[in-house]
Structure formats: structure tokens, C-alpha cells
Design a protein around this nucleic acid. Structure first.
Lengths: 215, 215
DNA sequence: CTACTTTGTAATCATTCGATTACAACATTC
DNA sequence: GAATGTTGTAATCGAATGATTACAAAGTAG
């Protein structure tokens, strides 16, 4: 259960209320699961990212699967909350009302990348459909988003499809780490630019900050 | 290295030329990796799906990582071949020429689901960007598709984004196994229908055949 | 028939990893 | 200042898994 500890100082670990520690672990687990997937991540990696010992992670969440389910629920909660806030905002009615709302929701979605791990762990859950329990939660979560777009945002079917499709492409380009090869292949940046338009700076800012954090 | 063997008869395993056996393993691995991901799949599961022993899989491909890389290359090859064939087809020029080509490519993409595992293992590779060697191949593969749409199909940026986005949503709904809950939640079918339009029958046919095969 | 190559498996090894146990340090209450 | 609860870790266990080894059976060449 070892792993070469990074340069981060291994302080004697201060005592912290369980609720607060819980959120720390969930935040760390979001990043780790988002990067490596459910099966690819280890509880030890999560523990190290959270600055605590591996047994503590397991005891607090029972099982690794349970931890992942909570990460998924947390990510879904953040996403839904962000969307609902946009939808609830007062907006003037017009012919392009739906289009404007879609733009705002899209911007909110892109901004979610700042909360490192949210979108990636969501995506990791989405492709775990084969897993009985994780898959069920992922399907339910996806449908919740669908219903929100349909009922609360009032999107017509084509708008829903277009919005979800853009989101999945966003997630994929994020997961595949296209910015990592901007130097080697200019097409990588071109594809990112053609996908994100003006919002590319936000994405690059977040991924660059993450890369620096990793170094 | 055990696992409850299915009802499939465990024949004494006939001797088969290495090249043929190799393709069998790759086909089986496509399905297994597509369902469970790179980290989630085991070489033993691949071996059982191919009807041979686990050591043989490892010896033929060296490592699990190598096997996954070959699965990825094979999937990418099939996709590129299918696209190139459509692009090479003679077509009359008109104002909606690009749109028609996009429709045909989209149909070809959906049809790829028949070759079980191709699209899912591709998607699994796309979200493995964190893995150094797999991630590099996945990025290169994605960019190859991008270049094909841009240079060979002659798509404008917006068409590329739309096409790729639809494809990623397709992959995601496929991976999340939405058809599994058509009975429980009618919204699941509604979302599938809003995404695939007329092509839903093709998708359902393929996934149903796969489900029956699993039973 | 004998030697050699190809195709395949059984047995097993070393590692990894999730989980458990036992215990320690700190805080709180009475 | 005991007693009790909270927060945390070290040590370790058992199962899973990728990989290796040794071996067998079938084909092929001479």
C-alpha cells in the first residue's frame, strides 16, 4: 500500500471535524476518479490526495464503490444546482429566448471545469453503465439532467440533443487531455478552438492551473 | 484466476492459426474493454470471451496495455475505413452537399455499433487521457478523425463540431446503457429517440442482440 | 521415425489493493 | 481527572490479477 510520496510535506495531519474531512476527501476523490476512472483509481491515491491515510478513507465511506457513488452524487448536485440557478434567473421573453438560455447554460457548464474533477468524474460515471449499481445511478443522473432541460428550461428536443451533444464533446476533449499536445500538434488547439470558441481561455486557464498543481 | 464459466460449452479448444486466433482475441477484447474500460477489464475475462486460456492472451500480446493499444488501433482503423468509404463515394454537388455527407457519415457511425465493442472501446480510450501511452494514442486517433473531417470531407468548423458532438453523445448514451431501463423510465426511450431519430431501430437491434447474447 | 515448430494449458508467482484490526492521540463531559 | 467519544494511523490480511514458467499435444519437415 505504498507509493512514492510527492514533495508535499507530510505534516502530522491536524484533527478536523468529520464533516469537513469528508468534503476534503470527496473533493480529492473527484479529481482522482475523474483522471483514472472508477476501476483505475485506488483508495490509496484518494487518501494521499486528501492528505490522510488509506484506512481512514475506507472507514469513512465503507467501500470504494460507496465513495464513488458519493462523488457522483456530489458532482451531479453541483451541476444541477448551477443549471437551476441559470434557469431561475429572470430573463426577457423574445424569439431567441431559448437560444440565449442555452448559451448561458453552456457557459455555466464550461465554468464547472474550475471545480476540478466535477465534469470528469461525471463522465467517468457515464461510461460505467456496465457496472450494476454505478450504472443505475449514472443513468438516473443523466435522465435527471434531461428532464431539467425539457421541463424546467423548456427546451425542444433538438435543442436538448444539441446541448447534451456539445456537453459530451466538451467532456471528451477534456478527458482526452487535448491541451497536453498543443505544442506537438497545432491541430489540437484548432480543434479545441473550433469547439469552445470564446470560452477556450476559461478551459485553458483551468487545465493549466491543474497542470501546474501537478508539477 | 478463476471465474464461474458460463453455459458455453468448454470444448477442448481446437488448434487455430495464430493470425486467426489473434483476431478472435481482439474482437473479444473489444467487447470486454468496451464494457469495463481498460483498468476494469481483466485479461482473464478477455481470454474467457475468446474461449482460450489467460496465459495465451498475455503471451500473444505481451502485456494488457499492449492488447488495449491494439484494440484501440483496430477500432480506429474500422472507423476511419468506414468514413473513407463514404467520403470516396461519388456524390452530386449541390447547396446541401455537406449536409448530406454529414448525414451519411452519421449513419455509418451508427451502423458501427453492429461491430460490437468498436465504439465503446474507442470511447473508453478517449477518457483514458491520463494514462501516458494510451492517452497519447487516443489523442492522436481523435485528431486523425478531426483531420479527416476537415481535409477529406471538407467540413467547415461548425459542421465538425456538430458532428463530433453528436458522436460523443451517441457513445455516451451507448456506454451508459440507456436502453436497459426503457421499461422502468419512459424518459429513457424518449431521450434515445430524440437523439437517434430514425436510426433508433438500428441501435436497439444491436443492443438487443447483444443483451440476448449475454443471457 | 525423428527433430522441430506451433499452439495451447496448468500451476504458480509477485504485486497490488480494498478491507479489517488493533491501537494511539486528542477532545469532551461529568 | 476518569470515562467516553472522536479522529486518526500502522500493520496486516485475503483476494484478485498480470505475468512467468514449465510442460503437453498437435502439426510439419527431413
Amino acid at each position: 500500500m505504498n507509493e512514492t510520496s510527492g514533495t508535499a510535506a507530510a505534516q502530522p495531519t491536524e484533527r478536523i471535524p468529520a464533516a469537513e474531512r469528508r468534503e476534503q476527501i470527496l473533493a480529492a476523490a473527484s479529481v482522482v476518479f475523474g483522471e483514472r476512472g472508477y476501476a483505475g483509481a485506488t483508495t490509496d491515491q484518494v487518501a494521499r490526495a486528501a492528505g490522510i491515510s488509506q484506512p481512514y478513507v475506507v472507514r469513512m465511506f465503507g467501500t470504494k464503490e460507496n465513495l464513488f457513488l458519493e462523488v457522483l452524487a456530489r458532482a451531479l448536485g453541483r451541476l444541477v444546482a448551477a443549471f437551476r440557478q441559470i434557469i431561475a434567473e429572470p430573463r426577457e421573453h423574445g424569439e431567441d429566448e431559448a437560444e440565449l438560455l442555452a448559451m448561458r447554460l453552456g457557459a455555466a457548464y464550461v465554468d464547472l471545469i474550475e471545480d476540478r474533477g466535477i465534469l470528469l468524474s461525471l463522465m467517468q460515471a457515464f461510461i460505467s453503465g456496465h457496472n450494476t449499481v454505478v450504472g443505475a445511478k449514472a443513468r438516473a443522473g443523466f435522465l435527471e439532467i434531461y428532464r431539467m432541460l425539457r421541463d424546467e428550461a423548456g427546451f425542444p428536443p433538438d435543442a436538448i440533443r444539441g446541448f447534451l451533444a456539445d456537453g459530451m464533446l466538451f467532456n471528451t476533449l477534456l478527458a482526452i487531455r487535448l491541451p497536453d499536445i498543443f505544442d506537438e500538434d497545432p491541430d489540437a488547439e484548432e480543434l479545441m478552438r473550433c469547439t469552445f470558441r470564446g470560452k477556450l481561455d476559461v478551459v485553458l486557464g483551468a487545465t493549466a492551473a491543474d497542470a501546474a498543481e501537478h508539477a
